[in-house]
Design a protein around this nucleic acid. Structure first.
Lengths: 236, 236
DNA sequence: CTGTATCCATGGCGATACTG
DNA sequence: CAGTATCGCCATGGATACAG
């Protein structure tokens, strides 16, 4: 018995949505990914077998529609799936307010840049090809260097040097850039503390992270220290 | 590893909230239950061991505060827990729109009346003691007869005859009253089809289900047939 | 009334490898 | 690129009994 045996619509909704990974797949679909491997990038650590299973389940439940066009497969949310957007956004807002503590295990340069790629504010960048190199000061070789290549309104992410001239180079610790992108930490503060830096034509790229953009929920107001204290496990 | 290894706040939120039963416990707390056994009534089929475990987890996460006063224990949501209300309500709205099909296993007279008890519109009832007897025509003995006793603005639920004079008697199939209470089915329709009936002083009790009230999300607009068709597994 | 303790079966899921 | 196949573990949680 995997159901709850309740008619309550919260229970009926959660029978589907409380399965591990499911809502993260929905989140990635809402963010615009349609391809299997794009979804994988957006939901790292999820095995392909499980992703496949979840997509099938969501399709059977009518939240996702799969369309095959030649060798090209796309998954898109149906109307009922799209209606989960306010819920996912509310969860993001809640999470950003109340689960602020990030462990080292929560940090992931691949995922951060996969998300950053979507928030680059191309309008603020030069119309000619612009390349921002990113370097994480505290990440092991292999995931420490990245390049955002912006051209014709498209942004590509490379984990290898694409060879073009670099407009500016942003250096930062992984945790600092993650915090800045999530909101709640300012790039100015990261610069001051020495956790971040920018070289090259900073103005051209909107002074680094400002031009890279922020998460959609970055602007959600954080609880005050007083509110946080009230919500804490409580000495009672 | 039970986490998702992601900094995404949706992932961080779901690490806590996608555990089985958790959000239903939150729902019941939001509805106003504070006592362990009241929570159990609101979340039937959940073992007490698991309820205890979830409450502890929620307390450690700062969403719930436990207060002990003599032999009286109360669980209340903290500010961060209360902030889940819009999410739970949105889930209820989503569920009621898109997961309309109720199986026989989802029906439960105990839970229905536990919920109904909260929505009785005492203002509409006489100031003197009012007793509504409910009888499910299709439920096995033991859970087929119920009494709502309303007095001094309080509503009590009995599964035995309290002995007072009955103001009115509502008869219905379990599925019909569940649908009416959830919204999406009208009591008038249930009466017409013969699935429901009311005897006695119907006017005094707001003509039955109208006075008994409806779920908070009963008014959520349901998708049209056309929308439903679009969201269905799709013949593509 | 408010839980805790214990036990056990299940199946979810992580890992890895492999295919059209 | 877009998945399937297989395997095995162990944690989840259901059931039951019991305790302060």
């Amino acid at each position: 018995m995997s159901g709850y045996g309740q008619f309550c619509p919260v229970a009926k909704a959660m029978e589907l949505l409380d399965e591990r990974w499911t809502l993260l797949v929905v989140r990635e679909l809402l963010a615009g990914s349609t391809r299997f491997n794009d979804l994988r990038r957006g939901v790292p650590h999820m095995s392909p077998a499980l992703l496949s299973k979840r997509l099938q389940r969501l399709e059977r439940a009518g939240l996702v529609r799969k369309s095959v066009d030649g060798s090209h497969t796309a998954y898109r949310l149906s109307p009922s799936g799209v209606e989960l957007r306010p819920i996912v956004e509310a969860l993001a807002g809640w999470g950003v307010r109340w689960i602020g503590d990030l462990g080292q295990a929560d940090l992931d340069p691949h995922l951060l840049l996969w998300d950053v790629r979507r928030t680059v504010d191309v309008e603020r960048w030069p119309r000619s090809r612009t390349v921002v190199a990113l370097r994480f000061s505290d990440v092991e070789t292999g995931a420490a260097r990245w390049w955002l290549v912006c051209h014709d309104g498209e942004t590509d992410l490379c984990d290898f040097d694409p060879g073009f001239e670099v407009t500016a180079t942003v250096t930062s610790s992984l945790v600092a850039l993650t915090r800045v992108w999530r909101g709640g930490r300012s790039w100015a503060g990261a610069l001051r503390s020495g956790e971040g830096g920018i070289d090259g034509d900073a103005d051209a790229v909107g002074r680094g992270p400002a031009g890279i953009g922020q998460a959609g929920w970055a602007g959600v107001p954080r609880p005050s220290e007083r509110e946080l204290a009230l919500a804490r496990p409580a000495a009672d």
